Simulated scan of single mutants.
Amino acid sequence: MANTVFCKKYQKEMEALDRAPLPGAKGQEVLQNVSKQAWQEWQLLQTMMINEKQLNLMQPESRQYIMAQMDKFFNNETTDKLSGYVDPGDIKEL
């Protein structure tokens, strides 16, 4: 059976990540408090944010922004909206 963790995003026991997804203390915090499913969902949102906002993660401001958005996401707080994103379920066929 896979390891589990009490996921702070979903507030229940879920499958854990296999290893820390980030270096250092932040990576250990994510490993101990975030499920594999929540991490995968965050990665999708993060990619959309990086692309839409044209972030350069070599810049400290961009990294700080992404980390702040990640904390909001896992704490079920409102993250910045992506203006160009259209949910595929909202698209109506012509």
Rank of each mutant, 00 (worst) to 15 (best):
Gln43Ser: 07
Asn33Cys: 06
Lys9Ala: 12
Met1Ser: 14
Lys12Met: 14
Met49His: 12
Leu57Gly: 06
Lys72Ser: 09
Pro21Ser: 04
Leu31Lys: 10
Val86Gln: 13
Lys9His: 10
Met14Gln: 15
Met58Tyr: 07
Phe73Ala: 10
Cys7Gln: 00
Gln64Arg: 13
Leu22Thr: 00
Phe6Val: 07
Lys81Pro: 03
Asn51His: 11
Val30His: 00
Lys36Asn: 14
Ile91Cys: 06
Lys36Leu: 14
Gln59Val: 09
Cys7Glu: 01
Phe6Asp: 00
Trp42Ala: 05
Ser83Glu: 07
Arg63Lys: 13
Trp39Asn: 03
Thr47Cys: 05
Asp18Pro: 04
Met1Asp: 11
Leu45Val: 12
Tyr65Cys: 03
Tyr10Met: 06
Met1Thr: 13
Gln11Asp: 12
Asn75Met: 10
Arg19Asp: 09
Ser83Cys: 01
Gly84Gln: 08
Asp90Lys: 15
Ala68Thr: 12
Tyr65Arg: 09
Asn56Val: 08
Met67Glu: 14
Leu45Tyr: 08
Leu17Cys: 07
Asn76Ile: 05
Ser62Ala: 15
Met14Lys: 13
Val86Phe: 02
Asn75Ser: 15
Asp90Val: 08
Tyr10Thr: 11
Asn76Tyr: 02
Gln54Trp: 02
Tyr10Lys: 07
Gly84Trp: 02
Glu52Asp: 13
Gln54Phe: 05
Leu57Lys: 07
Thr4Gln: 14
Lys92Phe: 06
Lys36Phe: 10
Pro88Arg: 01
Met1Ile: 11
Phe6Gln: 04
Lys92Leu: 12
Gln64Ser: 11
Ala20Glu: 09
Thr47His: 13
Cys7Ala: 03
Cys7Trp: 02
Cys7Ile: 04
Val34Ala: 00
Pro60Ser: 08
Asn33Gly: 05
Met49Thr: 00
Lys92His: 10
Val30Arg: 02
Val5Phe: 08
Met1Phe: 09
Asn3Gly: 10
Gln54His: 12
Gln46Val: 00
Gln46Glu: 15
Lys26Glu: 11
Lys81Phe: 06
Ala16Leu: 06
Leu94Tyr: 07
Gly89Val: 12
Phe6Trp: 10
Asp90Pro: 01
